[in-house]
């Protein structure tokens, strides 16, 4: 009897969970595995590093709630990227609105442009310029493909059709290959 009384008292005063739950450990393991790839993807979406880190935190808090509520465990990797993608869009949207207010109407590129500094040589700088001139959807498709996702998974993450994924990859690789050829 003693411990069931304890359990009820636990429910009342909130000591119902001892230490860390298995779920917290599981989510941390996911974090360890996917923080890097998610940050890289967010950087490719031109999210500033500090914002990227914060978005990743939100992604894994969302994962915790998702699993706690017993929701689907199918393709969790795709799920993580989809949530990160949507949070990044939200973040950029807020940033642009903020920037527009600050600069009183002047249009400001929200991610301008930490990565340009990191790129070593001219050829890569030119490729980066070509990449940045692509429609954003095409850039997302390329980055997700580079993360190893199949076309169907990319379509699910971005909420677009399979055909759009194939077209985006064709368009962007055609252009990148022409840019490379001009070297």
């Amino acid at each position: 009897m003693g411990s069931s009384l304890q359990a009820v008292v636990g429910l009342l005063v909130g000591t119902g969970r001892p230490g860390r739950s298995a779920l917290e450990e599981e989510v941390t393991a996911f974090y360890d595995a996917f923080r890097g790839p998610l940050l890289r993807y967010l950087a490719s979406m031109r999210i500033a590093p500090a914002d990227g880190e914060e978005i990743v935190q939100e992604v894994f808090l969302a994962l915790f709630r998702h699993l706690r509520d017993g929701k689907s465990r199918a393709n969790l990797r795709g799920w993580l990227f989809r949530v990160a993608h949507n949070l990044a869009l939200k973040n950029r949207h807020a940033k642009v609105r903020h920037a527009v207010v600050e600069a009183s109407g002047e249009s400001v590129d929200p991610g301008m442009n930490p990565e340009q500094l990191a790129v070593g040589n001219q050829r890569q700088a030119r490729l980066l310029a070509v990449l940045r001139a692509l429609p954003e959807q095409d850039q997302y498709c390329l980055s997700l493909r580079a993360e190893g996702f199949r076309y169907r998974e990319i379509a699910e993450i971005l909420g677009i059709s399979l055909g759009s994924v194939a077209n985006a990859l064709e368009r962007s690789l055609s252009r990148l290959s022409r840019a490379g050829g001009e070297a």
Binding site: R20, E24, V27, T28, Y31, D32, R35, G36, L39, R40, Y41, A43, S44, P49, G52, E53, V56, Q57, F60, L61, F64, E115, A118, V119, G120, Q124, L127, L128, L131, L142, S143, A146, L173, L176, G180
Partner: peptide, 27 residues
């Protein structure tokens, strides 16, 4: 070339330990 560009341009730079501890606390 895209893969190489991506590795150079989009590599996460911040060390993970602080962020990880923060996530653990939030969880």
């Amino acid at each position: 070339e895209f893969v190489r560009l991506r590795e150079e341009a989009f590599a996460p730079a911040i060390p993970a330990a602080g962020a990880r501890a923060m996530l653990r606390a939030r969880l």
